[in-house]
Write a protein that binds this DNA or RNA. Structure first.
Lengths: 162, 162
DNA sequence: CATGGCGTTGCAAACGGATTGCACTGAGCG
DNA sequence: CGCTCAGTGCAATCCGTTTGCAACGCCATG
């Protein structure tokens, strides 16, 4: 079913432009540019909505690797700030590609039925965090904010459309 | 270690005032007033911070019951709007007692190190939800908002104080 | 272009929170 | 005071995620 990772004959084909920059960032962390690593980043590059480990694993084509490797890599990539982790509240971690220099701060509007995810611009007045922190003696305050609702499709269709 | 639930000799002792009201709401749902049920509500009544299933189970004294029963009861109680479920992002569900008529809408400020939880008043202008929904074709929009930071204790102490 | 170290991978086992099937118990109605 | 069905204990199970270990392979260095 799965095949060993060392066997792909064109290891760099999927990486298009950001190879240099990517290589740079990987090297800085004493990280290696492996087949699975590239393939995972490539899957994220092709999707706009946050993807779960399992979804990413399923989307890997012939470059597939073990699910555990997907987990490990996403943890690593998050550490390196190449991806951002989202918690949509269903107990499944999802990830988005993070652009260079981008702090990736935005929120999501999630459909309760079909889990459709829309990116949201709205956010807090930034000073509220500091204010809240000061009021309660906290520092380094950040926040997590997600909206939930019923998307237009699920309002009419009683059955979820995945 | 655990003892059967039927053995407590004073089944109603812990319930103080809200027995009538509680009984009312339980009866309406064709629910029974059992020992574990009372004990769980009582534990929540004695705490202000949200508690996990495991914490609640540990806090049950001689009224203890099976952990599975704690899970089942909290699901039931949430359904009945007697408690509110919080997701603090660590993959563990936590619960707070919900007062009669209270919609329980508020948010938390959580310490990243020691998991201290403080209740927060700040929230969104209510119309933002509707606005966001309208803009993206969603209805019934709600939100989840949590703040994370370093509490005053953990700012000085490098080690978490649980 | 060969070599070696260490970061990475596959595989399987384990982990932790949560759920569930089943037989038994007991709350509360008539 | 019985009957009935919600509730319970117990153990098995589920699912997302992590981890131990041996083999592998990326890549800095010679």
């Amino acid at each position: 079913m799965k095949q060993p990772c060392g066997q792909h004959s064109h290891p760099h084909r999927l990486i298009q432009q950001p190879l240099t920059e990517l290589t740079e960032r990987l090297r800085q962390g004493a990280r290696k540019i492996t087949g699975p690593r590239q393939a995972i980043l490539d899957v994220l590059r092709r999707h706009q909505s946050p993807l779960s480990n399992k979804e990413i694993h399923a989307a890997l084509g012939k470059e597939s690797c073990d699910l555990a490797t997907v987990y490990r890599n996403l943890n690593t990539l998050e550490e390196m700030r190449l991806v951002r982790r989202f918690d949509l509240g269903d107990g499944v971690a999802r990830f988005e590609l993070l652009a260079e220099g981008d702090d990736g701060h935005h929120h999501h509007l999630v459909c309760r039925k079909c889990s459709l995810v829309v990116e949201i611009d709205e956010c807090f007045p930034a000073d509220i965090e500091a204010e809240i922190g000061r009021r309660h003696g906290f520092t380094q305050v950040s926040h997590r904010l997600e909206f939930f609702g019923l998307c237009s499709r699920c309002q009419v269709a009683p059955k979820p459309v995945v």
